[in-house]
Design a protein around this nucleic acid. Structure first.
Lengths: 132, 132
DNA sequence: TCGCACACGTTATAGCATAACGCAATTGAT
DNA sequence: ATCAATTGCGTTATGCTATAACGTGTGCGA
C-alpha cells in the first residue's frame, strides 16, 4: 500500500510525532495542537487511525501511546512483525524487525490454524543510557 | 518465587478468571463480584496487581483484559517470554511459550544493551473455529 | 445535479485506571 | 507489653483513554 496525501490534521499529528523524541499519548498530542485549532480528542484519534492504517505510525499498546515509524521511507507494513523496546526511564523507543522471530511465531500460529491480523511485541525495561 | 496464600479478595478475583472462558476486563470482574460485596474498581485492581505479581494471571495489554495463566501448577515467571493469540471473534486466548523466540529477542536486546523487565507479545486474529 | 464518500467539528458519554484518605489486623523488634 | 512498620481493605473522588452520535462542508463521478 502506498501512503496517500495526508490531510491537514493528519499532517499536523504526524509532524508532532515525528518531532517528538518519545511516544506521545493522544491527549498529549491534542495539547500540543491546541494552538493549531485542535479542540477535541476525536480530531487526534481520527488522524491517528489513518496514520496507523498507512503504516507511518505505530501504536504502543502497553503504554497507550503512539510513535512515528522509524522507517520514514519504506512502508512498515511490508516488514512483517515489528518489535519495540521501550525505556521506562527516558521513554525512548527502539524499533526492531526480525524475520526469525517472525517466522517462528507464524509457524506456531499456523500449527494452531490461527489467522493472525495484528501483532504487538513490546519489551519494557531500561535502555543502555538509563540502565546505569 | 512461590505463590503465597491468597487473600479473600485475591481468591475471589482469581476464581472468576479461572472460570471465565475468555479474558475479562477489571470492570467486568467487578460486576461479577458485586454479590460478593465488591463495590469499587480498586478492590479488583489491587487483587489483580498481586495476582500478576505472583504470575498466576496475565494482563493482555492490547485488549485491557486479564486471563488466568494456562499453567495452573508451575509458576509462569519461570517460563521466560509468553505469547498470546487472541481471537477477536470468540475471545478465546491461546498461551504460548517458545525458547527460540525468547532467545532471539533477548539476543537483540543484549546487542542494544537494553535491560528487559516486562514483555508483551500478543497476536490478534481469528482462531481455527472462527476463521471460517 | 444527485448521490456518495470522506474529512472535519462538537457534545456527550463510555471504559479503564489510580490518588488520597482512613481503618483494622499482623508481625516483629525493643 | 508496646510501639512501629507493613499489609490488606473500603470509600470517595478524580484523571486518563477512547468512542458514539450528531451535523456540516467539499469534491467527484454517474
Amino acid at each position: 500500500m502506498t501512503t496517500p496525501m495526508l490531510t491537514k490534521n493528519q499532517t499536523l499529528v504526524f509532524d508532532v510525532l515525528t518531532k517528538a523524541e518519545s511516544p506521545l499519548s493522544a491527549y498529549t498530542i491534542l495539547d500540543k495542537l491546541r494552538d493549531q485549532g485542535f479542540r477535541a480528542p476525536l480530531q487526534v484519534y481520527r488522524a491517528l487511525d489513518k496514520l496507523l492504517e498507512y503504516g507511518v505510525v505505530h501504536r504502543l499498546e502497553s503504554i497507550n501511546s503512539f510513535v512515528a515509524c522509524a522507517h520514514p521511507d519504506e512502508n512498515c507494513h511490508s516488514h512483517g512483525l515489528v518489535a519495540f523496546a521501550i525505556c521506562e526511564s527516558c521513554g525512548q523507543v527502539i524499533e526492531f524487525h526480525d524475520h526469525e522471530v517472525d517466522h517462528r511465531l507464524m509457524d506456531w500460529l499456523k500449527s494452531q490454524k490461527f489467522k493472525a491480523e495484528k501483532s504487538t511485541i513490546e519489551i519494557r525495561g531500561h535502555c543502555a543510557k538509563c540502565a546505569a
